[in-house]
Design a protein around this nucleic acid. Structure first.
Length: 719
DNA sequence: AGTAAAAGGTTTTTT
DNA sequence: ACCTTTTACT
C-alpha cells in the first residue's frame, strides 16, 4: 500500500544505523525518530544476524501489523539466500500468541482447536450476554454492547479496576457498575465454555504461560527477539517479552548451549499513539531496567522529509506541553534535503470546500507527475473522510480507504460468514444465533426454542428462581450434542414459524450442500448467498447492494482451497486493511490513499493532506479532558505531519457537522487546531474561496453521457 | 406471547 | 447508520 522508499534514501547505512545493526552480546534499544530508517535498520539487523550464523528459526520479529511483518520479512528474503527468512517467526503479538498457544496451550487447559473471536464477534457475544443479564431493574438506558466491550478491553489491557476505568474513561456509565460486573463474569464463562479466545485473551494466556512451567520451554525457542514500534506496547506485552527472555545461558535437550536471549526493540516515544489501548512509553523508559545492561542508540537523521516539512513537525512537537516526560529520549531530527515548498495551511468554509480543494490539489499534483499512489489524505477519525469520499467518487478519482469502517464488520458480510462458520463448526453457537435472528418471524423466544431443539443449549434452572427455566448461551458446556446441530437442522428437528418456512427450507438445503467436500469455498459462499437473498429484503433497506457485496466476498474466497483456511485468514488479516477487497489490484492501477492517522503509521507519501486539523477534531474533544489525552493527540498530529516526503498540506474546515452522518444538520464552528499555532509562521497560508460560484463552469472528463443517463433513469421510473 | 415497526440515542483511534 | 428501548400489532 505504501509508497516505496524515497529515491533520495541511500542504500547504505549511516554510522548510527550500522552500530544498531552490528551490536551484539546484549539487549538493545534503538530510539528512532520518524523517517530515520527504522524499518531498514531492523531488516538489516535481521539479515546481519543471519549472516553471522544466527539460526533464523530461533528469531522472533514482532511488529505492529501483519502487513509490516510480511513486508520486512520480504526484504530479509531478498537479502538472504535459501529461504532463511521464511524460518523467522514474524507477526503481531496476537498472531504469535495464536501460534504459541496452539503449541503449548494444552498445558494451560486450552483446547487445541480453540478459535479466536475477532472484535465484532466479541462485541456480539457481549451483546448476547448483556440481554441475558436482565438489566431490567433500575437501569434506564444501558450502555451499548460496543461500549461494554470497550470498557472490558480497557480494563483488561490496562489491568485496571472496573471502578477506575469507569471513573476515568466512562463516567456516564458509573451507575451500571454492578450490572457490568455480572456481564463480564458471564462473558468470560461463555468464552470458556465455547472454547474461544478474544484478542485480549491471546495476550493474557501467552503471558500466563511464560510464568508457568511451560515458560522455560517457550523461552528456549528464541535467541533473538526483535520488536518494532515498541512505544506502542502495553504492560502485558512488556511482561510477555520479559517472560520470553532467557536470562541465563541454557542447554538444549541435545546439549547445545544457548546464551541468554538478546532483545532488540525499536521505537519512538514521540510517536506513541495507542494509549487508549493502554500502551505506554513507560515501557521504553524502563527498558534498561526490564532488560538489564541494554545499550541505547539513537537515530536522528531523517531521510524522508524536506527541511520545511520537518521544521513544521518539530515546531508542533516543541510547542506542545513539553513535559519533562516527553523529552525523555531527546532527539533532534535533521535532514540534508533542504529544498522543498513550504507546507500549506488551508482554511475552508466548510467540509465541502475542504473536499473540493483537496481533490483539486490531488489532481494538480498528479498533473505534475506525482502519482495518486504517492499521495495520501489522513484524518483523525474514520468519518472525517466521508465528505471527501463523495467528492472523489463524483470525480472518478480512485482511492482506497484504510481504517474506519471495515468491510468485514458490515452486517451483511457477517451474516454470510456466520453461515460459513456453521458449516465449518456446527457447535458455533454465536454463529447460529446470528443466522437464526436474520429470519422472518424469528425473535428471541424462537431462537431459544430452536437452539434447544438443535441441542445447542440445555434448559437451565436458575437456582435463584427455580420457576424460571432459562435456555442460555452460556450452557451446554461439554454437551457432545452441540456438534450434531447441523445434522439435526437438516434432518428437520427444528421447527420454524410460518413466515420463515421458505427461508428455513433454503437454510437446510444450503447448509446441507456446504457440508462435505463437494463445493469450493467460493461456491459455498455463492450457495449460502441464496439464503441471504431470501432474508435480506426484510432485513436491509438496500438489500440489492448488499447481495452484490457477497459476490465480492466469493471472489475473495476463490483464492482459497479450504474453508477453514479462508475463515482463519479472514479473522487474522481482514481485507480492506492489507489487501484490496476483491483481490490484488492491477499493477497499472493508480489510487489515492485515504487513511486514519493510526492506520497510516509507518507509511510515507510524497504528498500528504491532513484533514480536519481543527480544535475538537484534532485534538479530539474526547481527549481534551486530560493532559495525557492531549499529549497523545499532539503526537498523533506529529505522526501525521511526518508522513510527508515533499508536499504537505494541513486543512482546517471552519464549519462542519457535529454528527457523523447528519440526519440532523447541526454545525459547529471551530478554530484551527491549537497544535498548529506554534508552527503557523512556517506555513504558506491559504483560504479556499468557499462555495463555488454558480456561474462558474467546470469541465471534468468523463461527464459525457450524463445527459443520457438522466433520461434513462427517468424512464426507468415509469417503464 | 412474541414479533415487528417506530421512536429515541449515539462519545475515536485497533490488534 | 446502527443500536436499544418502547409501543403497537398479530
Amino acid at each position: 500500500m505504501f509508497a516505496t522508499a524515497s529515491p533520495t534514501r541511500p542504500d547504505s547505512l549511516n554510522a548510527d544505523q550500522r552500530r544498531a545493526v552490528g551490536f551484539r552480546g546484549g539487549h538493545l534499544l534503538v530510539v528512532a525518530g520518524a523517517g530515520t530508517g527504522k524499518t531498514k535498520t531492523l531488516v538489516a539487523r535481521v539479515v546481519d544476524l543471519i549472516e553471522d550464523g544466527a539460526d533464523p528459526s530461533r528469531m522472533l520479529l514482532l511488529t505492529f501489523t501483519r502487513r509490516s511483518a510480511a513486508e520486512m520479512l520480504g526484504r530479509v528474503a531478498a537479502a538472504t539466500p535459501d529461504g532463511a527468512a521464511a524460518q523467522v517467526w514474524g507477526g503481531t503479538f496476537h498472531s504469535v500468541a495464536n501460534r504459541l498457544l496452539r503449541m503449548f496451550g494444552a498445558s494451560a487447559g486450552l483446547p487445541p482447536d480453540f478459535t479466536v473471536l475477532d472484535h465484532g464477534d466479541s462485541t456480539d457475544l457481549m451483546g448476547m450476554v448483556r440481554t441475558e443479564a436482565g438489566l431490567g431493574e433500575r437501569a434506564k438506558r444501558f450502555p451499548r454492547k460496543e461500549t461494554i466491550a470497550g470498557i472490558y478491553s480497557r480494563m483488561v489491557n490496562g489491568q485496571a479496576k472496573l471502578a477506575d476505568v469507569l471513573e476515568v474513561d466512562y463516567p456516564w456509565c458509573t451507575n451500571h457498575a454492578e450490572d457490568l460486573k455480572s456481564i463480564f463474569a458471564a462473558y468470560t464463562s461463555a468464552k470458556r465454555s465455547h472454547h474461544v479466545l478474544d484478542f485480549d485473551d491471546l495476550l493474557l494466556f501467552w503471558r500466563g504461560l511464560t510464568a508457568s512451567r511451560v515458560g522455560r520451554a517457550m523461552a528456549g525457542l528464541f535467541d533473538h527477539i526483535l520488536v518494532d514500534e515498541y512505544q506502542d506496547t502495553n504492560p502485558i506485552q512488556s511482561d510477555i517479552l520479559r517472560g520470553m527472555c532467557r536470562t541465563q545461558p541454557a542447554e538444549d535437550a541435545d546439549g547445545t548451549r544457548r546464551p541468554p536471549t538478546q532483545m532488540c526493540a525499536v521505537g519512538d516515544d514521540a510517536q506513541a499513539i495507542y494509549g487508549f489501548r493502554s500502551a505506554s512509553v513507560a515501557n521504553m523508559w524502563a527498558y534498561s531496567t526490564h532488560f538489564p545492561g541494554a545499550e541505547v542508540l539513537t537515530l536522528e537523521q531523517n531521510y524522508r522529509s524536506t527541511e520545511p516539512i520537518l521544521a513544521v513537525a518539530n515546531a508542533v512537537l516543541d510547542g506542545g506541553t513539553n513535559r519533562a516526560d516527553d523529552r525523555h529520549f531527546a532527539k533532534k531530527l535533521w535532514t540534508t534535503r533542504t529544498q522543498g515548498p513550504a507546507p500549506v495551511l488551508a482554511t475552508h468554509h466548510d467540509e465541502g470546500a475542504q473536499a473540493r480543494f483537496v481533490a483539486d490539489a490531488v489532481l494538480d499534483a498528479r498533473e505534475r507527475g506525482v502519482d495518486l499512489r504517492q499521495q495520501a489524505v489522513l484524518f483523525r477519525s474514520g468519518h472525517h473522510g466521508d465528505v471527501l469520499e463523495l467528492e472523489l467518487t463524483r470525480r472518478d478519482i480512485p482511492y482506497v480507504k484504510f481504517g474506519g469502517l471495515k468491510y468485514l464488520e458490515a452486517a451483511h458480510i457477517k451474516d454470510l460468514l456466520a453461515l460459513l462458520r456453521i458449516a465449518e463448526n456446527p457447535a458455533d453457537t454465536l454463529a447460529w444465533h446470528r443466522v437464526l435472528a436474520t429470519m422472518d418471524g424469528v425473535g428471541p423466544a424462537t431462537i431459544r426454542r430452536v437452539m434447544l431443539e438443535l441441542g445447542l443449549s440445555e434448559e437451565v434452572v436458575d437456582p435463584a428462581d427455580p420457576t424460571a427455566a432459562v435456555a442460555g448461551m452460556a450452557v451446554a458446556d461439554n454437551n457432545p450434542a452441540r456438534g450434531d446441530a447441523l445434522t439435526r437442522l437438516v434432518g428437520g428437528d427444528a421447527t420454524f414459524p410460518a413466515p420463515a418456512a421458505e427461508q428455513a427450507a433454503e437454510l437446510r438445503s444450503a447448509l446441507g450442500d456446504c457440508t462435505g467436500d463437494g463445493l469450493s469455498p467460493a461456491e459455498q459462499v455463492e450457495r449460502l448467498a441464496a439464503f441471504c437473498a431470501l432474508v435480506f429484503p426484510h432485513r436491509y433497506e438496500n438489500s440489492q447492494a448488499r447481495l452484490a457485496d457477497l459476490s465480492a466476498l466469493a471472489a475473495t474466497a476463490a483464492g482459497y482451497r479450504s474453508r477453514s483456511r479462508f475463515l482463519a485468514e479472514l479473522t487474522l488479516d481482514p481485507p480492506g486493511k492489507t489487501s484490496d477487497r476483491a483481490g490484488p489490484p492491477h499493477l497499472d492501477d493508480d489510487w489515492l490513499t485515504l487513511s486514519t492517522i493510526h492506520s497510516a503509521k509507518g507509511g510515507e507519501w510524497r504528498a500528504v493532506h491532513l484533514l480536519h486539523a481543527s480544535d475538537g477534531s484534532l485534538p479530539s474533544d474526547m481527549a481534551a479532558g486530560s493532559q495525557d489525552g492531549l499529549d497523545e493527540e499532539l503526537r498523533l498530529m506529529y505522526v501525521a505531519l511526518t508522513r510527508a516526503q515533499e508536499e504537505l498540506a494541513v486543512h482546517v474546515p471552519l464549519r462542519y457537522h457535529v454528527n457523523r452522518h447528519g440526519l440532523d444538520d447541526r454545525h459547529v464552528y471551530a478554530q484551527p487546531s491549537r497544535f498548529i499555532e506554534p508552527a503557523r509562521h512556517l506555513f504558506d497560508e491559504r483560504a479556499s474561496t468557499g462555495q463555488r460560484s454558480l456561474d462558474q463552469t467546470v469541465e471534468v472528463e468523463g461527464a459525457v453521457g450524463v445527459g443520457e443517463e438522466v433520461d434513462t433513469l427517468l424512464a426507468s421510473l415509469w417503464e
